[in-house]
């Protein structure tokens, strides 16, 4: 935790980028669990944008894909020890 008056170490903070814009992925497949596992935490919850750094446009696609995957039981709604 950086305190108020501590100097922030610029080198450590790497700017977040949207992985979909960078790698040019346009469609997020809801049938592909291994790819979707990167966007949910251990309890099966969708990771927020401030952690993953994805842009809002693709975050909506990710959340829609995860919700569809949950509907057809590819991803659990809640899990204790996911990965």
């Amino acid at each position: 935790m950086t305190l108020m008056n501590e100097p922030i170490k610029r080198a450590e903070i790497k700017p977040k980028y949207c992985r979909f814009k960078k790698s040019g992925i346009k469609y997020i497949d809801y049938k592909d669990p291994d790819f979707l596992l990167k966007f949910i935490n251990e309890q099966g919850k969708i990771l927020p944008r401030r952690l993953t750094g994805t842009s809002w446009k693709y975050q909506k696609k990710v959340s829609q894909a995860v919700k569809r995957a949950r509907h057809i039981a590819i991803l659990p709604y809640l899990a204790d020890q996911m990965k």
Binding site: R19, S23, G24, I25, K26, D32, F35
Partner: peptide, 11 residues
């Protein structure tokens, strides 16, 4: 099988 790493699958 596990899929190929998605990053290279640039569309």
């Amino acid at each position: 099988t596990a899929p190929k790493k998605r990053e290279e699958a640039a569309v």
